[in-house]
């Protein structure tokens, strides 16, 4: 049983992106096997230095949430074409993130992962 948090925004909607990571952090901190899937503009969060630019009022800085998520054992998948379109390569990724195709996400869902999308 695992939890998938799908995030499709970043600089375009920092509020939504930050809330999504708060939920992801809640899941992993509650002992759940948790994966964040970054697609569309959400892929930016997977690039080093980008999360540091998002500091939504009323929340912890996004970079702190991302680092805390990974440190607690969370996995980050970055959509392959979304990363390619934005010129994001494996070398650019934050620790704990990997570029993964749709098959990885489908495999998680097919195995019974519960998903919440932002």
């Amino acid at each position: 049983m695992s939890i998938l948090v799908s995030i499709a925004s970043s600089h375009d909607n920092p509020d939504r992106c930050t809330v999504a990571f708060v939920v992801a952090v809640a899941a992993v901190a509650s002992g759940q096997d948790t994966t964040v899937f970054l697609s569309a503009d959400g892929a930016w969060v997977g690039k080093q230095g980008e999360a540091e630019k998002i500091n939504e009022e009323g929340f912890a800085p996004l970079a702190e949430l991302v680092a805390g998520f990974v440190e607690a054992g969370g996995q980050i998948l970055v959509c392959t074409p979304c990363a390619k379109k934005r010129g994001i390569t494996e070398e650019d990724l934050v620790p704990g993130a990997i570029i993964a195709g749709g098959a990885a996400v489908v495999a998680l869902l097919a195995a019974g992962a519960t998903s919440i999308s932002y």
Binding site: V25, A26, V28, G31, F59, G68, F69
Partner: peptide
Amino acid sequence: DRSCGELLLVLHR
């Protein structure tokens, strides 16, 4: 003043 997931992350850690 942390709440929700942010508070749980502190507890977990």
